[in-house]
Design a protein around this nucleic acid. Structure first.
Lengths: 223, 223
DNA sequence: GCAGACTTCAAACAACTGTTTGAAACTGCC
DNA sequence: GGCAGTTTCAAACAGTTGTTTGAAGTCTGC
């Protein structure tokens, strides 16, 4: 058991939130698991919402810094030249999957994050937007530079689809049982699987909606 | 306003569940929106959980029947020959997207479904598993027949990724605001976009994990 | 028009929610 | 040892939750 109450509460909350959701997790469940008094949450964090925010920020800030650092490294190496789309995708999702591969805590958190991304209460969405603002701006810019001919809207959708695939990939254990018994304990394999799927999706021909906006058929390859 | 209380409750519940989640939606919210008495839920459905189950079953049964019918049609036309993977994907996700395109109610339901798929309470998972059992068995069989060389595990993962992309595609409106302002009001365009992404992902080269199991490099194309 | 089944209603139920309180226990520092 | 500051604790708070109750209302078939 960890030394300070504050950390124990954060860990307990993280685990319970991913199991029971934001509303389904009660302060009494959390404090019981953390071996802390019920009032400890309000003492250390101020409110349940503030605790939830702290649970997210604790790892999300770091994660997004890593993503930006990864992009920085690529851009420095490229010396102003556009990056390959594939590099950009690999840096964004690679950082994420590496977090999942590194520790069970990372996996738990990413499952929580992926799920929350589609069902955000208003207060969750507001600090998520804040946390993501810089990463999204940087990656969008990199992509638009890499693929000036691809309509920006199209790319945003694809990025969105990719995040959906990622979300299901990390939250796999639960939902996958529907599809059949499979092994989701090997993060390396998951990384390889997801990445090849994502790149395949990213490089797919643009849908017909854009056909008129493009000149040569060959140019209908997105990447 | 619809005639009978039962339907009004189902509709109100569907709309509120997608907005506030399973736990966040209260019976009082539902009955107020449905212009019904609080006790009406327990009278018509027995409990809140039973109501939620009814909300899902009302449309999910039909949806899965459609998917099976679509597969039936393909297999009849093929006269015992394996289908093209692309046909299979198009039939499964095509039916889904068509439901989203057909009505606002369909879209609402699919957003609810996509979200619930990753965050199921135990009672939700049990009836979801029941509802999906046949569809999944049929589509898995069709895929394994179409792609006998692709490891089954690999395909299950890809299908899982596709469902993630689908989930984010239909629940788009909320989460997409993080990525930037885009138009998600055109279901036709969404269909085209998602489908080309999915086929791209499905046809991507298999990840290196399987490299040893495959003979010729060319064979590493999944579809 | 009336009996019998079905449906609606207001009110209350116990259980649980997040939060607050004020006293107790503990901590490090002089 | 004693005193500030921090942390923990049991208890209670008002509000909300899903569910139940029994009476009132409505509809159908004869």
């Amino acid at each position: 058991m960890e030394p300070d109450t504050r950390s124990r509460i954060l860990d307990a909350a993280e685990n319970l939130l991913v199991q029971h959701g934001l509303d389904g997790t009660t302060l009494r469940m959390i404090t019981a698991t953390a071996h802390a008094n019920l009032a400890a949450v309000n003492y250390h964090f101020g409110s349940k919402e503030a605790l939830i925010e702290a649970v997210f920020r604790r790892r999300l800030t770091w994660l997004n810094e890593q993503r930006i650092a990864a992009l920085d490294a690529l851009e420095t190496a490229a010396r102003g030249a556009p990056l390959k789309p594939r590099q950009i995708v690999e840096s964004y999702f690679g950082v994420t999957i590496r977090m999942a591969a590194a520790s069970a805590e990372g996996r738990t958190f990413l499952r929580l994050l992926g799920r929350t991304y589609t069902e955000p209460s208003e207060f969750v969405r507001s600090f998520l937007a804040e946390e993501y603002a810089e990463v999204i701006a940087r990656y969008k810019a990199a992509f638009f530079k890499a693929l000036p001919d691809v309509p920006q809207e199209e790319f945003i959708w694809r990025f969105h689809f990719m995040m959906g695939a990622l979300s299901y990939a990390v939250s796999g254990a639960d939902a996958l049982r529907l599809l059949g018994p499979i092994d989701d304990t090997d993060p390396e394999a998951l990384y390889a699987r997801l990445m090849s799927f994502l790149i395949g999706g990213l490089r797919a021909p643009l849908p017909e909606i854009h056909a008129k906006a493009v000149k040569k058929p060959r140019a209908r390859r997105a990447a």
